[in-house]
Design a protein around this nucleic acid. Structure first.
Lengths: 348, 348
DNA sequence: CTGTTAGCGCATTCAC
DNA sequence: GTGAATGCGCTAACAG
């Protein structure tokens, strides 16, 4: 038997030969409606699984109880963790999430932002794909969001050019902390492998690295930093750029690159951490289970997601749109594992 | 300066002192509107970033160009891959995705399905959290979707009780294939570590395992299968259940458990694969980078996502709702790596 | 060429 | 107690 696919107030109304507004009130349990009729209508509605149409309500209420989340790459575990954190909070506060992936394409990001401007969501959380340079051309899309009064929270990859709430990682301190740990375990000949070259985030980490070096009377040299592109033959580049014989510590800026570097070192016959120590910026399980397990900087992706979502929803639900934007900095943690030497070995 | 946050047709109309429908037509470049006025309106709209309200259009068109995706756990890399596949296709065909995570809670799944019934999406893709037993109580939520004519595609964890399009992994063949590989490399004393006990999927794999054993004249014994709960002390259970001395091959049904098992074996002094071989059901990078790298069954999550999304959107856009539901079976691949012995070692 | 009317599904205000 | 009218923002059919 074929049932009507959409049960509306109107249909119920005509079934009971009453008006739509009567049905509406009955279903919303208004005291205005006679008890007997009310019960009959409610029962009928329940039996036939009546459910008010979200879209109609959205139009009426001028909100959607939905937030848009824009990330550069959903296959990156860091962003998945952020997503998880956002999801937790959103769910708790009655919001749904519409997830958009830019795949690191600035054009796609623009397209998505454009879509998100159209009233489909009440607010947006984004980690932008744009580096500072590209952003200039493309900042308009953010402006439009803001101009339409759609609350915006940026996380991780943010930009000063846009005024909004932000949740960022303390990347400077992270670079500093990792470097200090190298030094504290007797590793003084250091290098950085940087798969996110040109990003402000990477630069902050490098700044922290510099500071730690300086504090210990070591001089920073640009040669210490090896940028790696996605297409590059990493083994070749590392061999050309680094003198492994002299090195005893490598800091790597993402998870996959970390294990790849370790693999290359192993192939070349170096022992980790005895010959060379490794610290990685990682988020996933990977670092825990490779051998040796990786000493890492944890960025607390889930926490970043939670903070971002809380802030956004606060902003959405605030009656007034004030301009007191806030930037929240999330501290990283150094998780010490097997790819660095124990602290007792050396003092510095 | 404060600009109006929402620019509507009405606002433009009153600005030009024309009617709303004139503006609508002008913006949609109708030939009915005088060239001069049309251009003026279009220019004004562009300058002020007019964008038609999605929600209003959704109400009008009775669709949302959005699909709901329901997964048990977003931190599981398999589901992330599926999500990625869905995203690719959805984007290509002009749909957005609203992602919902049940966190393996059947109540939450019911809640989500309930929400998804309310007109927020045009169709649903789901991997249900429910095992066959629980499903009885809770099948109503699926029925409701179907009854409301909302297209539904189930993937991975499906159920016969619901009639809809499905995309499943050939888990029987996967179990068979993995077992055959053990046998072909001379491993005949086998065990299974099953962290998804009671799931139909796990049972299919076990059936494949049995068949491979039988084909080689070996007898299956329930003792060969060790179920592991999320809370269990795995090391303890394995020690109690398995005689590692006699074992030379272990098949593990998820990724994290695989590396944990390997860790335990290493701790106990067994060499992989020389003493004991390992094959895992995995999806992530983890299996590639642990030492030794893990021979694994790849489930092609991305492909599953693509198929699911294609099927769903076809169904959504089909004028007629026929009942010729299709179940698509995705073959797995065995990726041979370092945790199993080379084929040349033995013949069988 | 432009405007009026109607309706998507719902809740709310105001009459009766 | 019940219902008609209004409007959320938009398009389409129909008048003028």
């Amino acid at each position: 038997m074929v049932s009507m696919n959409k049960l509306t107030l109107k249909a119920i109304a005509s079934h009971f030969k009453v008006s739509v507004s009567t049905v509406s009130k009955a279903i919303n349990d208004s005291h205005e409606i006679g008890e007997e009729l009310k019960v009959r209508i409610q029962k009928y509605a329940k039996q036939n699984h009546y459910k008010p149409n979200r879209v109609a309500l959205n139009l009426l209420n001028r909100n959607t109880k939905t937030i848009g989340v824009v990330i550069p790459n959903i296959l990156n575990y860091f962003f998945v963790q952020v997503l998880y954190g956002i999801e937790q909070i959103a769910d708790k506060r009655g919001y749904s999430i519409i997830t958009c992936s830019t795949n690191e394409s600035i054009e796609k990001e623009a397209k998505i932002l454009d879509f998100l401007c159209s009233g489909a969501v009440d607010g947006v959380i984004i980690s932008t794909v744009a580096g500072e340079t590209q952003l200039a051309d493309h900042i308009g899309h953010f402006r439009e969001l803001l101009q339409k009064q759609i609350p915006l929270v940026m996380f991780d990859r943010v930009t000063e050019k846009i005024e909004c709430d932000k949740v960022v990682v303390d990347d400077f301190e992270a670079g500093y902390k990792a470097t200090k740990h190298f030094l504290a375990t007797g590793c003084r000949d250091l290098a950085i492998v940087n798969p996110i070259a040109n990003s402000p985030i990477g630069n902050l980490r490098i700044d922290g690295f510099k500071k730690a070096l300086e504090e210990n009377g070591l001089v920073f040299d640009e040669e210490m930093v090896v940028p790696i592109g996605a297409e590059d033959d990493m083994e070749l580049i590392l061999s050309l750029s680094l003198d492994f014989q002299k090195l005893n510590g490598i800091l790597v800026f993402d998870e996959i690159t970390t294990v790849k570097v370790m693999d290359i070192l192993r192939t070349k016959g170096y022992s980790i951490p005895n010959d060379i120590s490794i610290i990685g910026f990682t988020n996933g399980e990977l670092s825990k289970y490779v051998t040796p397990s990786v000493t890492m900087i944890s960025q607390h992706g889930r926490h970043i997601g939670e903070k971002s979502a809380s802030k956004l929803i606060d902003r959405i639900e605030a009656k007034v749109h004030e301009d007191d934007f806030e930037t929240k900095t999330i501290k990283t943690s150094l998780v010490v594992r097997g790819s660095t030497l124990p602290l007792e070995y050396h003092k510095c």
